[in-house]
């Protein structure tokens, strides 16, 4: 086969199918922002170190700056534009608003996408680097502020709004847990 350095890809973004030609060098981040006008996802470091570009790929949080768009072909992407339910904000969005989980707001879309997934990962029983006993018999460690800080460490906030970010994630996690036990809640990001 002759080499081809570009091609058409189809991505399902926030539930909607998009087919677009891309150069193979295009990252998912650049495809979202520059090609599809979805500028909610932010470019910070562009090398996987700041988390500003976090989106959900097949329900899991990833940094879109290190994800080649062509390698996401056929997959489902959820961006900050797709986490609310119509006019009703996602519980994580509402908690960031209510508790001032930001200052300038640049890192916020990444923080929120990351927090949505982090809450699901914890609910699925995933341990973290600060979990004292990782053995399954030990059960799930509670989502303490220390656990939240560790699980959210891939998202930098240069304004230093960490104190309220941790509070917002904690409140959203509590609400999610209550709503899950009450059943029939929407599941935005899919299974973790």
């Amino acid at each position: 086969m002759a080499p081809s350095t570009a091609g058409a890809i189809t991505l399902t973004i926030n539930g909607e199918k998009h087919t677009l030609p891309v150069d193979n060098r295009t990252t998912l981040l650049d495809a979202l922002r520059e090609r599809l006008g979805l500028t909610g996802t932010k470019k910070g470091c562009d090398q996987g170190q700041c988390g500003a570009c976090t989106v959900l790929l097949e329900g899991r949080r990833v940094v879109s700056c290190l994800q080649l768009a062509v390698a996401a072909e056929g997959r489902e992407v959820t961006t900050i534009e797709g986490v609310a339910d119509g006019d009703r904000l996602h519980p994580v969005q509402q908690a960031f608003l209510d508790l001032d989980g930001y200052q300038c707001g640049y890192c916020t879309p990444g923080q929120i996408c990351s927090a949505i997934a982090a809450i699901e990962e914890h609910a699925a029983g995933w341990p973290s680097a600060v979990t004292t006993d990782v053995r399954p018999e030990a059960g799930v460690a509670p989502l303490t502020p220390e656990e939240i800080r560790e699980r959210m460490s891939g998202n930098l906030c240069r304004c230093g709004a960490y104190v309220s970010i941790v509070q917002a994630v904690a409140r959203a996690a509590e609400e999610t847990a209550q709503n899950t036990s009450g059943a029939n809640e929407m599941n935005v990001a899919g299974a973790a």
């Binding site: 949080r61 990833v62 341990p127 699980r151 891939g154």
Partner: peptide, 11 residues
């Protein structure tokens, strides 16, 4: 779990 971030470990 001591390595990278939640996002990078997913990838």
């Amino acid at each position: 779990l001591a390595g990278a971030s939640g996002q990078l470990r997913n990838m």
